[in-house]
């Protein structure tokens, strides 16, 4: 019987369960994503959604993998960072399963999991990673036994910024894919927007405000339309992201570039990061879409890595850490 790990992702809108063996073969992955009827992600509503549905998701994952819950030998869950009330659900379910089945439990940092699943799926060793999602915007690379953060947003995350703008423009959550589609219909009518890069850090709040005012302006739908704003917003924001990634690439001299997170699905961003990777003779990889967004498989895989390096966590060590930074954590499996 193969050793199997069940990974639970519960940091934000997606409650996901992934089952994989200790070699990294994924047997099943089931996502259950909360989609708000209006507005953004209210933590209390997301928590209710996960609470109501977690058992269904676990059962479907077991069914898909064609195994019984008793075949699981390790439980991994997203311990940090994320929305507190939502993290608690994942932690609660993981603790319950671990004690019920009397098997080890491992808490995992969500951001590190994004990089580890990328390394596994894309078969690369030591990448510079651009991790872009609704909650995070991070340029990271492995240095002195940690995933160090070279650049990050000083305010809004890129996905959050695009989603918020989309909402202001009357589009339903999640707005990212819709903005990408609309931007393609622009006649490349570029409107100047704030481009803010500070060293390797970024700021999107000024860009967001400026784009929002463009919708409210009297010129809206006269000299420009929504497609033009979407196009300009993407060009500016992605230009900033690409610039800091290139800076970090020149600084760290890594030979691989990994693009991950929900926003990694954006084709325009992919082409820009691919371009600078070539410029610096680095191999470029995008994490397969299924594993780029939040998912339980990445939590399971990172849990396996940590478990193999230093064993499971005691139950008192499974406290959630909503604000933990990835560079606070040492990575024993890469030392």
């Amino acid at each position: 019987m193969k050793k199997l790990c069940l990974g639970i992702e519960s940091t934000a809108h997606t409650f996901s369960v992934g089952i994989l063996d200790f070699k990294g073969n994924v047997y099943s992955l089931i996502n259950d994503t909360f989609i708000p009827k209006e507005g953004g992600l209210h933590p209390a509503l997301v928590r209710e959604h996960h609470l109501n549905n977690f058992m269904k998701t676990i059962n479907r994952a077991l069914l898909d993998a064609n195994i019984s819950i008793k075949d699981i030998q390790l439980i991994a869950f997203s311990q940090s960072p994320g929305l507190g009330p939502v993290l608690k659900i994942g932690a609660l379910v993981a603790r319950m399963l671990s004690q019920l089945l009397n098997i080890p439990i491992v808490g995992v940092n969500h951001c590190i999991a994004h990089i580890e699943i990328g390394r596994l799926m894309c078969k690369i060793k030591d990448p510079l990673t651009l991790y872009v999602s609704g909650g995070n915007t991070i340029v990271s690379a492995f240095e002195s036994s940690r995933y160090q953060i070279f650049g990050e947003t000083l305010d809004l995350a890129i996905g959050n910024m695009i989603d918020s703008f989309a909402r202001d423009a009357g589009l339903q959550h999640p707005g990212g894919p819709k903005i990408e589609k609309i931007a393609l219909t622009s006649k490349q009518n570029y409107i100047q927007l704030p481009y803010v890069v500070k060293g390797m850090d970024l700021s999107f709040s000024g860009l967001y405000t400026a784009a929002k005012y463009l919708i409210k302006s009297e010129e809206y739908n006269k000299t420009y339309n929504l497609a033009d704003i979407a196009y300009s917003l993407q060009e500016t924001a992605f230009g900033m992201l690409t610039e800091v990634t290139e800076r970090a690439l020149a600084h760290t001299e890594k030979k691989e570039v990994l693009l991950t997170g929900g926003v990694a699905a954006n084709k325009r961003l992919q082409s820009m990061i691919e371009y600078i990777s070539k410029e610096h003779d680095a191999k470029f990889e995008v994490v397969p879409l299924k594993y780029a967004g939040d998912n339980g498989a990445m939590i399971g895989w990172t849990g396996i890595l940590r478990f193999q390096a230093e064993g499971g966590h005691g139950i008192s060590e499974t406290i959630i850490k909503p604000k933990e930074r990835m560079d606070q954590i040492t990575i024993p499996w890469r030392v």
Binding site: A157, K321, K323
Partner: peptide, 15 residues
């Protein structure tokens, strides 16, 4: 203050 803004907050304990 910059570090404590948004994503820069250091670890905090919650149960």
């Amino acid at each position: 203050a910059i570090e404590s803004r948004g994503r820069y907050i250091k670890s905090e304990k919650r149960i």
